[in-house]
């Protein structure tokens, strides 16, 4: 491509693409939308290990909610954890259990996991209305924005906007807190990227710009900055290389 991809050249757009563009993001296509791949500057992966905030809002995710949802997903070979826990799936997808029958499945950092698509297709292929309960699709890709806060200062930054004790020794990997973050109802899940502390953050997509500003503000004293998906991938790759 000769001209760089701009968010407006595709129909699907991140809820905060203007903020990202204003911060100098370089975009890459994925899931029919532009995602902030990099913000440039010195070693972005190191920034992500220190304190980074990434927007994964355009990334693929599906939800299933309502009577029978958890059982149906289990019947699809999905690992369903306890309520308020998340669990990695065989292909790297991540399942977040938000209630007895309220579940969300996201693709992975590298967007290679196809489980969300497979589940959406499997549900749609079934009879409608259903003969037996299997939950209903939830438009989590649209209703939630998806941010990832990474790095050694992530817990300290969260402590400025969230009243739940999220410090790594008190909030284990795989735990979910559904709580208030900067006065916004939110899902906070600890799903580290390799050995780097990472909180997966989901909240009202209409409030995404507000939320992004609040979190960046809270990050400032620790030298935090926005990072792109390439930095996240590097953090993931570097560690797995070591392993």
């Amino acid at each position: 491509m000769n001209t760089p991809l701009t968010p407006q050249s595709l129909a699907r757009r991140s809820f905060l693409y203007r903020k990202l563009a204003g911060l100098g993001a370089r975009f890459a296509a994925g899931n029919e939308a532009a995602i902030a791949a990099s913000f440039g500057g010195a070693d972005e992966a190191a920034a992500a290990r220190n304190l980074g905030l990434a927007d994964l809002s355009p990334r693929r995710r599906v939800g299933f909610k309502g009577p029978g949802a958890a059982d149906w997903l289990a019947s699809q070979g999905v690992t369903v954890p306890e309520i308020n826990r998340c669990a990695a799936q065989a292909d790297g997808a991540m399942l977040f259990r938000l209630g007895a029958n309220d579940l969300m499945i996201t693709t992975d950092i590298g967007a290679t996991a196809a489980l969300p698509d497979r589940l959406a297709a499997a549900w749609a292929a079934l009879e409608n209305p259903p003969q037996s309960p299997r939950g209903f699709p939830m438009p989590r890709q649209e209703g939630f924005c998806w941010l990832v806060l990474t790095g050694q200062h992530a817990a300290a930054a969260m402590a400025k906007i969230c009243g739940v004790d999220l410090r790594p020794h008190r909030f284990a990997a795989g735990e979910i807190a559904q709580t208030s973050v900067a006065r916004l109802s939110a899902v906070v899940a600890r799903a580290d990227i390799s050995d780097t502390l990472a909180y997966q953050l989901f909240a009202d997509s209409a409030s995404a710009e507000y939320w992004w500003d609040c979190i960046l503000d809270a990050m400032q004293e620790f030298g935090g900055r926005p990072v792109g998906t390439e930095a996240l991938a590097a953090v993931q790759g570097a560690a797995s290389g070591r392993a």
Binding site: K65, G66, P67, N101, G135, M138, P139, G143, S205, A206
Partner: peptide
């Protein structure tokens, strides 16, 4: 009641 209620205000 056997029903699911979902608030999808921001999704659309």
């Amino acid at each position: 009641l056997n029903v699911d209620i979902a608030n999808v205000t921001a999704a659309y």
